[in-house]
Design a protein around this nucleic acid. Structure first.
Lengths: 165, 165
DNA sequence: GGTGAAAGGTCATTAAG
DNA sequence: CTTAATGACCTTTCACC
């Protein structure tokens, strides 16, 4: 379980992943060695899975995104997954419950290009039916911290809150 | 438009956002100053929108995710957006075309907790109908590079020195 | 290219559960 | 007694001018 110090580290690194141990230790108010060991633990536990540069697809010219639900023929999920991997416009894909078997997220530079990508999906031969909804606007940008905050031990669980020397 | 050098930078930083200009210049094979100026341009253009630590929700204990489609009452989108922001389990939300007006992604530590979050969504009063599909497995992990590669000007190779126009 | 500043590692000491 | 945090040391490496 995460405590207040873990959460402070995650919050800081969520804003800027390139902050170093020294800067983190100053902004949070704990020793540098403490920051390092906690970060090591978070990485070893896999809570921090990596440090990534975030790319703005819109600024890169891909202004259209859509959620696509696919119904596929029995037992073809793995084949469809391989097909999806070869289509550049597919940003992510998940197997799901419900009427569709699979939901994927697609990006394109224009509606025409989106249509091309959707046709590529259907051309797979293993796709029985597809329905797509186009994203009009972003209401809540991607975030994970509120969820982590709601689960963190509120200070009583572990020892260290920032203590001034 | 992105060229081969931009793409190489984005690929490297997508793997590890904490690489510095020196290490980038070595792995790509261009001068340090070139890397710095290109990075500056990518950031100024907003293509690189930030450097973030990627958190693994599953490792943090949130093993359940779902896509939720909401139909809402006329003109209540903004009110619903504010409601969604207050619910920690909501990871992201988008206004969409189609039968639903809105699609959001929700995470929870268990099916019980997921149900609690779904109930919180419906309790909003402005939600007419909601349908949710639970994510069973991740078929294609989030990626943007294939799309960027497909659009990059396929000019100079990587061993040759890309020259800025 | 040179320089000042961090990163990364180790360790003895201290405090707390 | 076990676990964690601390501050201080070190060397190497990087970022900025």
């Amino acid at each position: 379980m995460l405590d207040a110090l873990d959460l402070a580290l995650l919050e800081a690194l969520h804003d800027d992943a390139r902050l170093g141990p020294l800067e983190l230790s100053r902004s949070i108010g704990v020793a540098r060695a403490t920051v390092s060991s906690r970060l090591q633990r978070l990485q070893d536990d896999g809570v921090i899975s990596g440090y990534r540069a975030e790319l703005d697809l819109r600024q890169a010219g891909f202004t259209v995104q859509a959620f696509v639900t696919l119904q596929i023929v029995q037992g073809a999920i793995d084949a469809v997954r391989r097909d999806l991997e070869t289509i550049p416009g597919v940003l992510e894909a998940y197997a799901t419950t419900g009427e569709g078997d699979l939901v994927c997220r697609v990006a394109a530079a224009s509606h025409e290009e989106l249509q091309t990508t959707l046709l590529a999906l259907n051309r797979s031969g293993r796709v029985a039916r597809s329905t797509s909804v186009v994203i009009l606007s972003e209401l809540v940008p991607w975030r994970t911290l509120p969820l982590l905050r709601s689960a963190a031990t509120s200070g009583a669980g572990r020892s260290a809150m920032p203590v001034r020397p």
